[in-house]
Design a binder for these strands. Structure first.
Lengths: 128, 128
DNA sequence: CTGCATCCCAGTAGATACTG
DNA sequence: CAGTATCTACTGGGATGCAG
């Protein structure tokens, strides 16, 4: 999070910013949750149901992290039972562009990556 | 890497692709190395010098991963001492667009994120 | 319903030393 | 020069149980 950065063509400002951003969205769940919330406000267990493979703990941690970084707004309605809604902030919505770019690249080039992986693994299977 | 994906507005294809991509570039060093190689071919220890904080082991592992996924080409020249050059493949270069988009977003919104973090931490410091 | 606390395991980073 | 091997330490993340 606070590493040296010796890129030749760029000072450390952009580099640290990218590092910080990747350590936020580079984890296992953040992009998934953010993408989900692009569809509108959701309650806690609603998200859980939509992402069955996430554990309660990780959803809590992910939402806390996103809230801390100002990407998600958490609204508590103190009824009984309590109701907590999560929605993207404007900052959160502004991530849509870069995320779409990444998704488009990922979709377009995944076959190439998988082919490269298969070729690499085949090349190195002979050794074993 | 092979997780369930229950996004409402997208089938699992794009989602898995994004997951795969993030697990590639979401680590600590890959983006740094790729960005570095955008400036042209580099030798192993050349990269090490340019990224002083990376360990020899992690540089090896990072380059292997990128090579396996077809983003980086590894060229061995069997002289004494041996010479190994790394350069981006066409696939690697195609990452430039999304990476730039991410960097621009990161640079533009980092102040907002840092402010949000400070506010969040301040809000929760009172509790302690 | 929401979410915090605890325990526990597996994966992965780092340091160091050694090899072709 | 360009790695590999090994060992240790840290962290992410799942399971479970408890609380407001």
């Amino acid at each position: 999070m606070d590493m040296n950065c010796a890129l030749p063509d760029r000072d450390s400002g952009p580099c640290q910013a990218v590092e910080a951003t990747l350590s936020r969205i580079g984890d296992k769940w953040s992009v998934l949750v953010v993408t989900l919330l692009r569809g509108g406000s959701r309650r806690f267990n609603e998200i859980r149901r939509l992402v069955p493979s996430i554990s309660q703990r990780m959803l809590t941690l992910t939402l806390r992290g996103l809230e801390r970084d100002g990407l998600v707004l958490r609204t508590v309605t103190p009824t009984t039972p309590p109701r907590v809604d999560y929605e993207l902030t404007e900052l959160g919505h502004s991530l849509a562009g870069p995320l779409d770019a990444l998704r488009d690249w990922a979709v377009a080039h995944r076959p190439a990556m998988q082919a490269a992986q298969a070729a690499f693994d085949g090349r190195h299977a002979e050794a074993a």
